[in-house]
Design a protein around this nucleic acid. Structure first.
Lengths: 140, 140
DNA sequence: ACCTTATCTGCATCAATTGCTAATTAGCAA
DNA sequence: TTGCTAATTAGCAATTGATGCAGATAAGGT
């Protein structure tokens, strides 16, 4: 995702308005690698701007996703997560704490069963235990 | 997933009962590669057994999943899909018709960013166009 | 045939997300 | 700076997929 300043220009150029609510969300998302949900973003936003609506958070996330500034990922936690990192990467989800980590995959795997299917995108979700959670289990 | 006959034995052995509803679902799921949702299974079941409850379908699917007889997959269609094929494979989802295809991947990809994470499972979702949908677009 | 216990159904509930609308505001232009 | 107009916001209703709950029912061992 681009910087708040660049997004401001991009939004205006697209005929969209740049409101304080959106500026706040731009800032909260910039360089955010926590893969937040709409709800957790709303919580974070509320501490800075009490009264901001969850609806507005959803709306802005949708706008950003449509502009290709962030990607929404589904990792089986029940709610969508948003990732301002739009480079080609994948995700690892910890079964213990639920945290989502970025994973970079080189060398495309060899496929079978896709003869009559043109792939435009692939996303891998790894499951397992993160370092912190393995340590926790070992302690018990 | 094992055959209806084998499942009957496995259920009894686990202290679960084998009801007509469950037998029907065993049959509907056996060798079913359509990756049905709970709702589509319920529709199919209703034509054979009018009055069968959607709740019962969910319950039986949960039981089967817990026994490892089927896996539930999330492909971004809003609802869970169930796959009686529990061999190691992945999925391709057509953006046109939404159909889910099985994909077999050999040669594990090389990872980066997983140094402190122990992976227990990986699932790849491919997106694109299936043969039928590409043909449709070409015709227009 | 009986008895215990799992199961079924139907309905209420829940969580995540989207639809809707009146009031507000960004941002261009005069 | 002021005004205009379309985009946006907030708040609530509605929707969807899934699960919780309870009384009636039925499986299946004895």
């Amino acid at each position: 995702m681009r910087s708040p300043e660049e997004l401001t220009i991009a939004f205006r150029r697209a005929g969209l308005k740049v409101t304080p609510q959106r500026q706040l969300l731009f800032r909260l998302l910039h360089d955010n690698s926590s893969h937040p949900t709409a709800d957790s973003l709303h919580s974070a936003a509320t501490t800075v701007m009490p009264g901001i609506s969850l609806r507005t958070v959803y709306q802005t996330l949708t706008d950003l996703a449509e502009m290709g500034e962030l990607q929404s990922i589904e990792v089986g936690s029940g709610s969508l997560r948003f990732d301002p990192n739009v480079s080609d990467h994948h995700h690892a989800v910890c079964d213990g704490c639920g945290d989502v980590h970025d994973v970079y995959v080189s060398k495309a795997p060899v496929l079978r069963g896709l003869d009559d299917f043109s792939v435009s995108d692939a996303h891998i979700v790894y499951r397992g235990q993160c370092g912190a959670c393995s340590a926790l289990v070992a302690t018990k």
